[in-house]
Design a protein around this nucleic acid. Structure first.
Length: 422
RNA sequence: GUGGGUAUAGCACAGUUGGUUAGCGCGUCAGAUUGUGGCUCUGAAGGUCACGGGUUCGAAUCCCGUUAUCCACCCCA
């Protein structure tokens, strides 16, 4: 029997879980600033939800999904990304009848069957936002500005914003033909992977990392040249707003998102600091997705952000060890009466809203104080027969070593431990 | 799915050309005259040497397989 956590999954505990909570707090706060509400969708969906949206030909759908049949033989799939579920929920709950635009964010686990690697897990976590109801470039800019501001608040540097436009379905088709024609001429010189991409999804040939392929593709036509007037105007507008917002970006005609639903704007935030999986955030516009699900034509734009990758970046920056537990006071005890009383005191202090800790191992006074020190308690006290009899305890500041004499009954009314410092 | 590295205590690591009882540091627990932490000292617990085969008188050590893990390809966040 194998009792280990499954491959590509991990337990999060101790200091790490504290770091996650801190990160999540920043995410929730920034979404409040941007007036975006949370949505929580199921962890699994009907398999068709992903087939229809992510795309039948993509690697995600073809070989990376955790798909299973339930007891009534329905095909269900653990979500490999969140946009499809949110789009489904938007239609199912008729959120289009609510005030528009509808802006939602999520923090949720995703599942993909891949070989684990730095920044790539089988269960990973995504933060993302989806904005429904706008076809405007200003929506794209808003979404991008949130991601940009978030990285800034997290103090993450060395991340570049890359933007591109794939155009609408027409432009995309046109570009596909032009590109296929161009690549077709040099097909023999390309690597085996590229030959496969050529038939499956020609756009992907563009971001091959093989140098010899890149050389052959140097003169390839760019998507941006194939855009119609409206798509070009949209892209220009986005750039103008980003400039106005003072958000730096590079136009990168090679970024091609792997999911089928993207149209027009696509973007990525990339870094070279955490290994090969350098895309920290990826997103774009998906105006065709809602109609694919049977809804009315609805403008939509959003992104997904890989939180494990963000954590890797945060770990690189925060080198300073810091205490992550805040413990106001340790109440130790000696003797039978002390033990009983101290338990009640700890409970009372907790009811008062203090972070209080006591002894539940019946350890020696010395061991109790050692423990208080290790957990980083700010104050400590020991309760025994003397203290109970005289209604007087010594409250010790564990950092300065200073002791304060106060009444035991007074301690029990304490709502803020530092009040005894004077 | 493909390729390469790694696997010894909770963590980080030693372990000689195969040789007897597998070690060190950190951490954990206990103690240093019995009611006061940090420093120091003493001691204890903790290992199927990833797992399964094979070679050998003898394997942590050599060989094969499996699994896990890390890195890269691929793919993507």
């Amino acid at each position: 029997m194998d009792l280990k956590a499954p491959r590509g999954t991990k337990d999060i505990y101790g200091k790490e879980v504290y770091m996650w909570q801190k990160l999540e707090n920043v995410l929730r706060e920034i979404c409040e600033n941007f007036c975006i509400e949370e949505i929580r969708t199921p962890i699994f969906e009907h398999t068709e939800v992903f087939q229809r949206s992510v795309g039948e030909t993509t690697d995600i759908v073809q070989k990376e999904m955790y798909t299973f049949a339930d007891k009534k033989a329905r095909s269900l799939t653990l979500k490999p990304e969140n946009t499809a579920g949110v789009a489904r929920a938007y239609l199912e709950n008729k959120l289009y009848a609510d005030v528009q635009p509808k802006k939602m964010y999520y923090i949720a686990p995703c599942f993909r069957y891949e070989r684990p690697q730095a920044g790539r897990m089988r269960q990973f976590h995504q933060f993302g936002i989806e904005v429904f109801g706008s076809f405007e470039a200003s929506a794209d800019a808003e979404v991008i500005s949130l991601a940009y501001e978030l990285l800034k608040r997290l103090n993450i540097g060395n991340v570049e914003l890359h933007i591109n436009s794939l155009g609408g379905p027409e432009c995309r088709k046109k570009y596909n033909d032009v590109l296929k024609q161009y690549i077709g001429k040099t097909l023999d010189g390309l690597c085996p992977d590229c030959k496969e991409r050529f038939t499956k999804n020609p756009l992907r040939v563009l971001d091959c990392k093989n140098d010899s392929c890149q050389a052959l593709l140097a003169g390839a036509p760019a998507v941006l040249d194939c855009l119609d007037a409206e798509c070009t105007a949209h892209f220009e507008m986005l750039k103008t707003i980003l400039n106005e917002m003072d958000i730096p970006y590079v136009v990168d005609p090679k970024i091609v998102r792997g999911l089928d639903y993207y149209t027009r704007t696509v973007f990525e935030f990339v870094t070279t600091e955490i290994g090969a999986q350098g895309t920290v955030c990826g997103g774009g516009r998906y105006d065709g997705l809602l109609t694919e699900f049977g809804g009315n034509k609805t403008g939509a734009v959003g992104f997904g952000m890989g939180l494990e990758r963000i954590m890797l970046l945060l770990e690189k920056q925060n080198t300073a060890e810091q205490r992550y537990k805040k413990i106001d006071v340790y109440v130790g005890s000696v003797g039978d009466n002390g033990l009983k009383k101290s338990q009640a005191v700890v409970y009372q202090l907790r009811k008062n809203g203090l972070n209080a800790e006591g002894d539940i191992l019946s350890r020696s006074v010395k061991a109790q104080l050692k423990y208080a020190d290790k957990i980083g308690a700010n104050f400590s006290t020991i309760i025994g027969d003397n203290e109970i009899e005289n209604d007087c305890i010594k409250l010790k500041n564990m950092f300065t070593g200073t002791e304060y004499q106060i009444k035991l009954t007074a301690l029990m009314d304490t709502k803020e431990i530092s009040q005894w410092e004077n």
